[in-house]
Amino acid sequence: MTDERHSDAAAERRARLAPADEERVLHAALGGLTDGIRARLDRHAAEPLDWVALIDELRRRGGSLGMSEQTGEVDDFGFDAGWVRRSRPFFDLLAERWFRLEARGLANVPDGPVLFVANRGGLLPWDGLMISHGLERRLGEAARPRFLVADWLITLPFAQPALARLGGVRACQENAERLLRTGRSVVAFPEGVKGAAKVYADRYRLQRFGRGGAVRLALETGCPVVPVAVVGADDAHPVLFKIETLARSVGLPFVPVTPTFPWLGPLGAIPLPARWTLEFGEPLDLDPADHDELAVLQANETLRRRIQSMLDAELRARAQAPTPPGS
């Protein structure tokens, strides 16, 4: 009894004394700094001290305590590889623990720049982020695609800087073409805002597929088109109904009402822990000679039907399968 109480008190004391995160970072940095200085002094004990190098080192270390360690080196679309690397633990947690992400058919993804065409779901672009993250984790950093984001989302405050750094690019023909021509894969969502704005009753029903922009793009750049079926995005933000009158005044295409939004305020942006499956289908057969309007529209429809059937198969499998443990 006394032992137990004693150990409790000890644990409490330990908890009280344990430095907070920032403090630990500070201690580590300062430790590294003193080590660095000591090493320099030892090594150059006989020689005069290299003050310039020491001061540079001090400034570098001092800078790394704050935000100035961000060198901010970005590529021509604002993609920040350093930021992506630093945020990887968060996305690992989100993908593996929260969404229990499963990726199938990765063997269908060819090397080189690929145009992925996926169904859109949910207001926030979690689907684009999960496809990028999943491909990066399973096929390596070079395979990380950029995902196209609708205008209203890429210019939303706070979303804009984060999305650009994570590889989001405004959805337009010029951008996608430039990315593919410079050897970077692209995820396109031809449904656009119509896909994001589906209510829960219409989940996983593909909306109209634009005017065949994706197919035309693939024909022009000669890149393979890989259909992707995303199951889970529509469940992460189930839109119960939409308020369209309010939307125009706040500059959104619609204001969604989900089980958590707007009731919980900004917390409503947190996705529900739906189980996610990404299925990569076989690349679409496109005849580069077929450039006429009808062929493009037919290929577009084939693509749409292919994704819809992949979605249906996955949903059927889910309905029949026993609930996996932990969901």
């Binding site: 961000q70 901010g72 970005v74 604002g78 405050p157 800087p161």
Partner: peptide, 23 residues
Amino acid sequence: APGVLPLSALIRGAGQRVLQVPP
């Protein structure tokens, strides 16, 4: 010139501070 930089990276790179102002 080739290359782009986020505004915040420019400012921080010069040792200045960013003052975030609501629109």
